[in-house]
């Protein structure tokens, strides 16, 4: 109920901003009758109309997880973003082992499995990607490798 109403209203606002932004684009000419603005306005209007129906006739409230699980999901997202930014400067092995280990621990809280999964995936995938598929990956930080 509440989720759908809030989501619907947010999407309507985004759709209005989308349409407003499209209005600033130039109109069409003889070679391109509609120009770059017409289709975005149609899409924006469709977005607003369908969002209106979602807000107006909401489904039963989805089963959102408790606060502990939400925090676990936020942590997972942060770990993934950190992984994205460290993949290149720190090399493949270390960030992959940490990220895979953390995710594994979050799915099933067994420390030994998580550590082994982290190390196993990191080394195993590196060998497959680097030597099996020939992708260019660096195992360690480049500053260490000269």
């Amino acid at each position: 109920m509440k989720t759908d109403r809030i989501f619907g209203v947010v999407v309507i606002l985004v759709a209005l901003a989308f349409i407003a932004s499209a209005m600033n684009l130039p109109a069409g000419n003889i070679f391109d009758k509609l120009g770059p603005k017409a289709f975005p306005i149609i899409v924006g209007a469709g977005l607003a109309i369908s969002a209106f129906f979602v807000a107006f006739r909401p489904d039963p409230e989805p089963g959102w997880p408790d606060i502990k699980t939400i925090l676990a999901l936020v942590l997972a997202t942060v770990v993934l973003i950190a992984y994205a930014y460290t993949l290149k400067p720190l090399g493949f092995l270390l960030p992959t082992a940490i990220a895979a280990g953390v995710l594994s621990f979050q799915i099933s809280p067994k420390p030994t499995t998580a550590v082994l999964t982290g190390i196993g995936l990191s080394v195993g995938l590196f060998v497959i990607f680097k030597y099996g598929l020939g992708l260019s990956l660096f195992a360690l930080p480049r500053s260490l490798m000269g």
Binding site: L80, A84, A100, S104, T117, G118
Partner: peptide, 30 residues
């Protein structure tokens, strides 16, 4: 799943990263 899903995620990252080489795309993927 505790082994499979991290593996799938890592493969996704390496795949997108080796295709576009951009941090922005990785964050967008997340």
């Amino acid at each position: 799943p505790a082994v499979l899903l991290p593996g799938v995620t890592m493969i996704s990252f390496v795949g997108i990263y080796s295709l576009s080489g951009s941090y922005f795309d990785l964050v967008l993927m997340i």
